[in-house]
Design a protein around this nucleic acid. Sequence first.
RNA 1: GCGAAUAUGGUGAAGUGGUUAACACGCCAGAUUGUGGCUCUGGUAUGCGUGGGUUCGAUCCCCACUAUUCGCCCCA
Length: 457
Amino acid sequence: MITKPKGCYDIYGVEAKKWQYVNKMIDSLMEKYNYSYIRTPIFESSEVFHRGMGESSDVVTKETYDFIDRGNRSMTLRPEGTAGIVRSYIENKMYGNMPNPVKLYYNGTMYRYERPQSGRDRELTQFGVELIGSDDPFSDAEVISIPVNLYKMLGLREIKVKINTLGDNESRSRYREALMEYFRPHLNELCDDCKERFNKNPLRILDCKVDKDSDILKNAPVTLDYLNEESKNRFEKVKEYLEALEVDYEVDPKLVRGLDYYNHTVFEIEAHVEGFGSNNVLGAGGRYNGLVELLGGPSTPGVGFASGIGRLIMALDLENIELPIKDDVEIFIMYVSDTEKNYAATLAQSLRMSGFRVETEYTGRGLKSQFKQADRLNAKFLIILNDEDLKNNEIKIKNNKTKEELTLGLDYLLYYLDEVLLEDDIDVEYKEEEMIEEDDCDEYHCEGDHQCHHKGE
RNA sequence: GCGAAUAUGGUGAAGUGGUUAACACGCCAGAUUGUGGCUCUGGUAUGCGUGGGUUCGAUCCCCACUAUUCGCCCCA
């Protein structure tokens, strides 16, 4: 049997409906924030990622899918979204021909050659935003609030937002040196992995799980002590704006990120629902003020995040959140014998063109099986065709919930369906309104025809 | 890159060194003379991951490989 590549998944059935729903919510949320959708290639010149993410980062050194194309060019399947988008920003001179700051969002697959486990795939889907061209701390805070709002909108409860600052480049390198100085005499007391981190990226020793309880780590110098005034002020501002946006966060001075391009604000959003594996970061991001320049563009600040959709759906499942997905059909057309089949085909088509979700029988099974099939598909109404009725220009229709059955003149069918199915349409609209946070609704809105749960209406 | 567990039909899952490998769900059909979802009966299944070895004989024992799952590293 031919099987899918390791770490990749086929998504279909109910699972696919969840993905479609989440994607729909993303698009609708981004529209409200006025971010515009961007699609960049799934592979880029290797240089984009090697320069962008840092030659020494783990993702680049051992997790990329690299290949040489037929023109002998070195290519890499994108392991993340930011570098490619920044390349596009520069190549298309967005700094000159779009309103500043440029606000972009993406939603697509990324590829990392890793050993798969719970919450970690080789092909993963990430949704993310990049806000390029603003250095204002407000943009940091708003970018953090976007995934938080998305998660809340979808109904997720158990999340935790962690933030930290790495400071500007000067603060960051001062801190790095201080850390190395501090850890050097204790090297032998640290775990093997940490010994390696000491040379590669000493910041990462801080979030070591093995040594996390040792005094050495507890007493290690903290980023905040090595920030210059400007970096410190900026971090304070970010926190203020987060409060204004009502984002609950905690400062984690040991939070550092794996990619080289980050400076100043970094953040992670974790899932804390029972049963989630150790890969519980749903989304993460930060500021990358040097990246545009590093990739050959004008010196331009930027901030963004990425959020894994697979992990998000895993969290929704674990919190038992039922998404309002349509898993039914409005009308199932069945027929007693083959002689009605032609009419079934005609009717199915015409009802579909009139806007109904219609299913019919394809395999020529007996009536009993067709009823079963209708149940499996959650059909709301059944149309049962037989020659005798058709001769009289009549049709039998049965409400599959109440089991009421009636015979209608063909001319009245559309009126009837419009009437009985209208209620359900309202239901769906209402559910979508429901997804809006109650806090978003104030008295003013409630006076209109806006449907909401506002208590005082 | 390192470590652990697992591998039996569409699904779940028993089981044995020896003729046709349980059972359940599912699916199809009949009882029901063209209106089902209950019940009963019958039917249906490309199945012991792959390759070696031990043996008269292996799905079962041994070895290797592969795949899956989980963990470490790292990351969304």
